[in-house]
């Protein structure tokens, strides 16, 4: 429970720094369907792309969009001679429209992934940039940041030894991979479902017609 509370606080703090976006163009071009490509990865952690990808569908669909099946799209691209996220990101919008008929593509780039060590604590960070692009016009409709930070020092029992023990216990309880998975889930949800700078409520959401942003 403590784990989640700490993570949530950081996610909220991070989102508060981003200025409110202009939703006019996004509203005018309102996509019904979103194609999510496996994220490009600027970090050294190979599995980051696919851990992150596995947490992208739910928030987007819950925001009212049709989300193409991410693993099927990935397999399809690989079978057609595009083995890596970098190559998939290079596919033209014309081709994407032709093959998938998607209204928009969501491009992710992972900027930071994994653990940073301090004297008595460590932080696990998941950070990615997102860009929603209109397939028809190539215009950027929306940009966002997905950030999740888990601080093993936060809420540790008093004193240096308490903190040391807490850090050690956390390391045993949660493997790095599982923790980044959990953080990804929180980060994508927080990025998408967010009244200040998240996605507009899509056509399949009951609040689609009452969402006032960009009107």
């Amino acid at each position: 429970m403590r784990k989640y509370a700490a993570t949530l606080l950081f996610a909220l703090a991070a989102s508060a720094c981003v200025p409110k976006p202009d939703y006019t163009l996004y509203r005018n071009r309102m996509p019904r369907s979103i194609l999510v490509l496996p994220p490009q990865n600027a970090t050294a952690t190979v599995e980051a792309s696919y851990i992150f990808l596995s947490t992208a569908s739910r928030p987007l669909a819950e925001a009212g969009y049709y989300v193409f099946p991410v693993a099927v799209v990935d397999a399809f691209m690989k079978e057609n001679g595009l083995p890596t996220p970098d190559e998939m990101h290079g596919v033209s919008l014309k081709k994407i429209k032709e093959v998938f008929g998607a209204d928009a593509v969501l491009y992710f780039t992972i900027e930071q992934w994994g653990q940073k060590y301090y004297v008595i604590s460590s932080q696990t960070v998941v950070r990615a940039n997102a860009r929603l692009v209109d397939v028809e016009t190539g215009q950027t409709l929306w940009e966002g940041k997905a950030v999740g930070v888990y601080d093993s020092g936060a809420g540790a029992p008093g004193g240096i030894f308490g903190a040391l023990i807490a850090a050690a216990v956390h390391q045993i309880l949660f493997s790095m991979v599982d923790r980044t998975h959990e953080l990804s889930r929180l980060a994508t949800t927080q990025m998408v479902i967010n009244k200040d700078n998240g996605l507009l409520m899509g056509p399949r959401h009951p609040e689609h017609s009452t969402d006032a942003r960009g009107r």
Binding site: Y50, I51, S57, H181
Partner: peptide, 18 residues
């Protein structure tokens, strides 16, 4: 309440890759 019943869809995607 969520719009959809998610079951294990996303967990399975995670597992098939990791």
């Amino acid at each position: 309440p969520p719009l959809y019943s998610w079951g294990r869809y996303e967990d399975l995607i995670y597992q098939m890759y990791i």
